[in-house]
C-alpha cells in the first residue's frame, strides 16, 4: 500500500532524512518511532505530498507522490501534529467543509459525518465552535477529519498527544479496529503505544532507519542475556557472592534498593528455580523473584544511542544497569 524507496530530504545542507526505505502492506499498522527531530514528520509530509523528496520515490496505493499527488491525496487521511482545525467553525461545519473538499456530497457526506461523529464521540460538541473545545476534543476532530472520506491509508502524526488516559485507550482501540481494512502509519514517541497497537515498528533516529521489525522480535534481537530480579528480606552480606556461584549466573548487580539483586544469566537458561531454592533453604526471606525482559523502551534507548553500531550490524555493548533501571517486568517470560 505504501512503498518508500531510498527517500532523502535535505534542507540546504541539513539532511532531515537519509535514504529511508520501508513499506506498509494493506491492513497493516506501522509505528514510526523516534526521538523528536528524528525525521518522522518529514517522512510523513513527503508521503502526504506536502513536500517533495530530494531523492528517492514514495508511492501510495500505486501512485507516485511526486507525479500524481492528487490521486495520492484522495487516498490518504492525514492528521498532522497540530490538529488542523479552524477555530471559527463549529465541528459539523468543519467536517462538512472537509468532506466537500474531498468531493463528498449530499447523502454520502451526511452519512460520513454521522459515522465519524459517532465513532469519535463528538455528538455533544457537534454544534460548538472548535475554538472553544478542549485539546482532547480538537484532537478527535482532527482524527474525524482524517477518517471522513474513509481513506485506505491513514497517516497519523502523534494521534494521542494531549488526550487523557481514557481517551488514549479509546483512540488506540479505534486504530486497532482500523487495522485490517486500512493501512496505518502512526508516529509516536510513546513506546507502549507502539507495542499496544502496531504489528511492526520502524525506529528512526537522526534521519535514518535504525531498526525495523515486530515489537517482540526487536526486543528479542537486542537481548544478550536473561535478567532475573531478586528481592530478599534478610539478605546476608555475602549473598551476592553466593548467588554468583549458582550455575548459569554470570553477574550479580546490587546497585538497586537494599535487598534487591539483579542477576544476569546465560541466554536461554532459566536460573529462577535454583535461585529460589538457594534463597529458601538459607532462609533469606524470599520476597520476589522474577524474570525481566527487555521492553521496547530499552530497545529504543539502545538503538538511538548506538545508532552507528546497529547500522553496521555489530553487537551492542550490553548496558545492564541502564536497561534494568528502566526495564519493566514481564511476568509471562
Amino acid at each position: 500500500m505504501i512503498d518508500v524507496q531510498q527517500v532523502t530530504k535535505r534542507y540546504g545542507h541539513h539532511t532531515a532524512i537519509d535514504r529511508v526505505t520501508f513499506s506498509v502492506a494493506k491492513g497493516e499498522v506501522l509505528a514510526f518511532l523516534g526521538p523528536n527531530g528524528a525525521g518522522k514528520t518529514t517522512t510523513m509530509r513527503i508521503l502526504t505530498c506536502f513536500m517533495p523528496a530530494t531523492e528517492g520515490t514514495a508511492q501510495v496505493a500505486g501512485f507516485d507522490c511526486a507525479e500524481q499527488p492528487l490521486e495520492v491525496k484522495r487516498r490518504i487521511g492525514y492528521l498532522p501534529e497540530t490538529p488542523p482545525v479552524y477555530q471559527e467553525l463549529t465541528v459539523s461545519e468543519y467536517l462538512r467543509f472537509v468532506g466537500r473538499l474531498r468531493g463528498l456530497i449530499g447523502g454520502a457526506l451526511t452519512a460520513s459525518m454521522a459515522r465519524e461523529v459517532e465513532r469519535l464521540g463528538l455528538g455533544p460538541v457537534q454544534h460548538r465552535l472548535i475554538g472553544n473545545l478542549s485539546r482532547g476534543y480538537r484532537q478527535r476532530v482532527g482524527l474525524a477529519q482524517a477518517l471522513l472520506h474513509d481513506p485506505p491509508v491513514l497517516i497519523l502524526d502523534e494521534p494521542t498527544v494531549g488526550l487523557d488516559p481514557k481517551q488514549i485507550i479509546e483512540i488506540r482501540e479505534l486504530i486497532k479496529s482500523l487495522a485490517g481494512s486500512h493501512s496505518v502509519i502512526l508516529s509516536t514517541h510513546i513506546l507502549p503505544e507502539a507495542t499496544a497497537v502496531c504489528q511492526r515498528v520502524v525506529i528512526i533516529s537522526g534521519g535514518r532507519i535504525v531498526a525495523e521489525d515486530t515489537p517482540d522480535r526487536l526486543s528479542a534481537r537486542l537481548r544478550h542475556s536473561e535478567k532475573v530480579s531478586l528481592t530478599l528480606a534478610r539478605a546476608p552480606r555475602d549473598a551476592a557472592a553466593r548467588l554468583q556461584q549458582i550455575a548459569g549466573v554470570q553477574q550479580v548487580h546490587t546497585g538497586g534498593p537494599p535487598g534487591n539483586f539483579l542477576l544476569e544469566c546465560q541466554l536461554g537458561r532459566d536460573v529462577r528455580e535454583e535461585v529460589g531454592r538457594v534463597a529458601v533453604t538459607n532462609d533469606w526471606g524470599l520476597v520476589e523473584l522474577k524474570s525481566i525482559s527487555m521492553t521496547l523502551e530499552d530497545v529504543f534507548l539502545q538503538l538511538t544511542r548506538h545508532e552507528e553500531g546497529i547500522a553496521q550490524g555489530t553487537q551492542l555493548a550490553a548496558e545492564p544497569v541502564a536497561a534494568a533501571s528502566s526495564a519493566t517486568t514481564d511476568s509471562t517470560s
Binding site: 509530509r45 502526504t48 505530498c49 506536502f50 492528487l70 491525496k73 484522495r74 490518504i76 492525514y78 498532522p80 488542523p84 482545525v85 479552524y86 472537509v98 473538499l101 474531498r102 468531493g103 477529519q145
Partner: peptide, 9 residues
C-alpha cells in the same frame, strides 16, 4: 491548517 489544505485533494 496550511498543511491540511495542501494535503487535501
Amino acid at each position: 491548517t496550511f498543511e491540511f489544505l495542501m494535503t487535501s485533494p
